[in-house]
Structures are given as structure tokens and as C-alpha cells.
Design a protein around this nucleic acid. Sequence first.
DNA 1: CACCTTATTTATCGATTGAAAAATAACATC
DNA 2: GATGTTATTTTTCAATCGATAAATAAGGTG
Lengths: 218, 218
Amino acid sequence: MAEPEKKTARRRRLPSAERRQEFINKAIDFFAEEGFESSTRGLAKRLGVTQPLLYRYFPSKEDLISEVYETVYVHRLKPDWTEMITDRSQPLEQRLNRFYEVYTDAIFDKTWLRIFLFSGLKGVDINRRYVELLRERIIEPIVDEARHEFGLDPETAKDDELEFAWVMHTGIFYYGVRKLIYEATVLEDKTRMIEDAVAAFLLGLRRKMVGGSGTGPS
Amino acid sequence: MAEPEKKTARRRRLPSAERRQEFINKAIDFFAEEGFESSTRGLAKRLGVTQPLLYRYFPSKEDLISEVYETVYVHRLKPDWTEMITDRSQPLEQRLNRFYEVYTDAIFDKTWLRIFLFSGLKGVDINRRYVELLRERIIEPIVDEARHEFGLDPETAKDDELEFAWVMHTGIFYYGVRKLIYEATVLEDKTRMIEDAVAAFLLGLRRKMVGGSGTGPS
DNA sequence: CACCTTATTTATCGATTGAAAAATAACATC
DNA sequence: GATGTTATTTTTCAATCGATAAATAAGGTG
């Protein structure tokens, strides 16, 4: 009465290169949701293939994870970010607003943020490299441009100025974390959030660099 | 020739209450370092006891983890934080500087930050509750005090003002993450970092609330 | 159609996991 | 010092882990 029940599952037999990339892409989503401690069997199930097949394409789970990191981080890197910040044909405030609009469009992605946070907690090397890259290509250029704006020597950026830029940057960054990771209620107007942060940053930086209006109401 | 090799390890046989608390306290450090996926055997080894003993005190690994969360979060809660912010006998800027000095002293701890970040990624309920508590006891009071300072109705705090306070707050918070989790080089002068952030926050907020000095240099 | 390559599955291994059951020894009390 | 309680260890189990070896079938080439 029961049907013949063909046991052997259909095999799609994709060419190697595509298959490999498909595995990596879906592994990114999988590990971002479940964490890197999740099993290769769970991943294979989601992929619709058997678990040993993964080992045809990656020598070990760790190698697969490395490729996940590499792909995730590399794909978000836009080399023209620095140019957006240093393009003096526009006012600095406008440049920063535009940059953070674009930057947050790139990284405010649930998968990316989770991978970033996971890798940071694990002390993975690529996370450190990314943070260093941020400093070189974003934080330092921002402070340099601000010093230029205020007529100071760009070469002598102070540590507290860089720190101040970090605080603004990570404050904006964490808006995405609160929204997409903690799923908290945030201001829906992202542009407004950025403009307020950038404006306060420049106000505060000018106060630090060239003195100026105090803070108290008196 | 070999010595008698007494097999049975010495047993300390601590009273139940102390033992339990000792387990929780050391479990906090253990899971903060190794992550919550680490084995109960690894934990027992660090505790200097056998693994099944853990199950005398906690019905399951998950129950132990819950106690870890509870202990970590509860121990950091200082109910007088709100009072520090709302004590109008001092200028607001001074209050905020003092509050963030104390607050960061409390949470800039490698173990606490790691547990917080882990629990956030896992979507644990207590993390959400903590963030909501932050809003009620810190973020909203800050904005209310600022509105009072600028002669506005404290009851009509706008969403963008709360968001702006969040950005400053999380920017300060992330200074600790960069230093203790990413082990990045940060400005050693924490007080300076706080003062700059708070000053810029108040400058920016006054600009938002009552208008005032623009940002551009012209 | 025959043949070869290789993508994929089946089956399995040893290690490790959370957890339970049973044995044992430390301590309190009389 | 005998006795009962219970903290602790020893032993063990079933499930799951990453990984390997062998069997199988899909597809290309002649």
C-alpha cells in the first residue's frame, strides 16, 4: 500500500565554484543567527545537503568560519568612504552627514552586526583589523578635516580629539545595534539621529579646539 | 615502588549555601571568558570539583546560567543613579559628569561587559529588561533635566531628544567595550572622555531645544 | 552506450556533551 | 564511638559533536 518510497534524495550536483559560494553565503546567515558554536549538521540541514558534503569544500569547520568572516568583512568595505570625508568641495558637516548616511546603510544589517559582535567577543583577528581600518580611514580623517576646518595643524591631532570622534562614531553605530540586535524601539528617523550627533560633535570639537561658547546657561 | 597513590581526592564539604554562591560567582568569570557554550566539565575543573556536583545545586546548565545572569545584572544596579542625575542642587553638567564617572566605574569591568554582550546576542530577557531600566532611570531623567534646564516642559520630551541622549550614552558605554573587550588603545583619561561627551551633548541639546549658535564657521 | 570523473550520500568513528544513578566519605548529633 | 544525613566522587548513559572512509549516482566525453 505504501508507495515505493524512493530513498535516495535527489542530488542537484552543482558545479564546485557555485556550490562553494552558496555554502559560504548561507553559512553567514546561519552562524549569524545561531552563533558559531552551532553544529555543522544544523548548517547542512538548512543547506539541504548532508553534513559530510561540507567537508568536501572546507577542510574543517574553522576554515569555513574563516571564510565567513572574510566574506562578511570584505564585502562591506567601501574604499571611497575616506574620500567622502575628505572631499573639501563641500562643508564638513554636510560631508559627515552624507558619509554616516551611507555608512549606516552599509552596516545596519542584522547579519553583519551579529557577525561583527560575535567576532569581537571571540577576539578574532579580522575584527581587530577592521577596527584599525576604521581608525585610519574614518576616525583620523574626520579629526584631520575638523582641525583643518578650525585652522589647526592636521598633523598634531590630539588623542582626546580622536577619542571624541570615536565616541560619536560608536554612538551612531550602537543605534543600529539597539534597533537590529536588541530590537529596541529607536527613533525611526535615522537621518535626524545622524544630523544631531554630527552637529553636536562639531560643536563640541570646536569648543575643544578653539574654545568658544561655554556650556552653562549663565 | 610507586607510592600508595591515594586515589580519593580531598573533599572540602562546604555548607550548601556558601558552596552554591561560590559556584555562581566562579561560573560568572568562567562563562564570561569562555562563553556560555563552554562545558560544565570545564567549569567544574576550574572550580576544583567534579562535574556531577554541579547538578546537586542546579537542576540544569540553563538554570545555572540564569542564576549567572541574575547575579551579574542585579549586583550592578545602583538605585541612586537616578538621584544623582535629578539632584538639582548642582549644575546639570556637573551632575552628568559625576554620574558617568560612577556609572562607568561600575560597568567598565571585563566580566560584566562580556556577560552583557553575550546575553544581548542571545536575546536573553534580562538584557531587554536592563535596557528598559536604563531608559527609565537614566536616559529619560537626563532629558527631563535638560528640558528643565532650558525652561521647557519636561513632560513633552521628544523622541529625537531621547535618541540623542542614547547616542551619547552608548558612545560612552562603547569606550569601555573598545578598551576591555576589543583591547584597543583608548584615551587613558576616562574623565576627559566623559567631560567632552557630556559637554557636547548639552551643547547639542540646547541647540536642538532652544536653537542658538549654528554649527558652521561662517 | 560505455567510461571516467566527481559531487553527493550512507555509514561510522572517537571525543565530548549534559545529565542521572550509584557508591563513598565527611560531618553533625546523640 | 555509633548512627544518620548529605556533600562529593565514581561510573555510566544517550545524544551530539567534528570528521573520515566507503558506497553511490549524476554528469561529461568519446
